[in-house]
Design a protein around this nucleic acid. Structure first.
Lengths: 126, 126
DNA sequence: AAATTACGGACTGTATTTATCTATAATTAT
DNA sequence: ATAATTATAGATAAATACAGTCCGTAATTT
């Protein structure tokens, strides 16, 4: 089990966008070269961030991407969830009458991690 | 990102072995039917648990599997690590001079989860 | 209308996971 | 010794997920 590469990218992208906040819209091409990812692939990731309402996109000339929320409202967890989805890391496969003790422990543990990721905002690392 | 099915099985297997502790060695076939997994696949998982020193195996008649450690020494984390390995969930891909702030946050968060999983012993859920 | 920009769908290659089959090795009972 | 019982290892295959590309479409501004 590992975080996907897309999550890796997404976190770095968001960090960059927070840093560049206030300046002109960043469009795909420049962002792609700065990040060293192919534009089309980057686009997929950005679209996911748009759908999660973390950034907004505007088409047309001088379009591009910019933050949607204030920077102190964007947590690590927000970004991760946008890419990885919101399902639990562990779900019991043996159907132990849908109240599996193992699952409960695993979820509690995950909660500890999630709590930390919700507290920590992206801007804090800049 | 999700825990593998094998981890799911491993936790249930260990819970069962802790429960059956003291009785005769459990051999592959009965264990497989109790768990509802194919014997050969189960065998792979058990071998990983053996290599992690959580259980021991004895071949020959009346052989099978049994715990290697006392039950209060077997944590959730021990079992998970035996299957998933010990690498971090997140490693920075952009080589930010090998001191990535994002990675540090991600590892701290993971640590919170791991701490909880190390504290929690399998026998506690029985 | 033209240029610039993002979005969406289809597709491909690769890696990982899940699983099976078969042959081999080790131990115990007869 | 031999046979029965048990675990282990390797090869393989199917299924899923991940990473990435290509290309056509839609929206906005000049």
């Amino acid at each position: 089990m590992k975080y996907t590469k897309a999550t890796n990218y997404a976190l770095h992208i968001m960090a960059y966008l927070v840093q560049q906040q206030g300046k002109d819209n960043l469009s795909l091409q420049p962002l792609a070269s700065h990040m060293n990812i192919s534009p089309t692939y980057l686009s997929k990731i950005l679209t996911q961030l748009v759908k999660a309402d973390l950034i907004q996109s505007t088409p047309g000339m001088n379009g591009g991407y910019s933050l949607r929320k204030s920077k102190d409202e964007i947590s690590f967890y927000d970004v991760i969830q946008a890419i990885e989805g919101s399902g639990a890391l562990f779900t019991c496969e043996m159907d132990e009458s849908n109240d599996c003790h193992i699952e409960r422990v695993m979820r509690d543990a995950e909660e500890k991690m999630v709590y930390h990721l919700k507290e920590k905002k992206i801007y804090e690392i800049l």
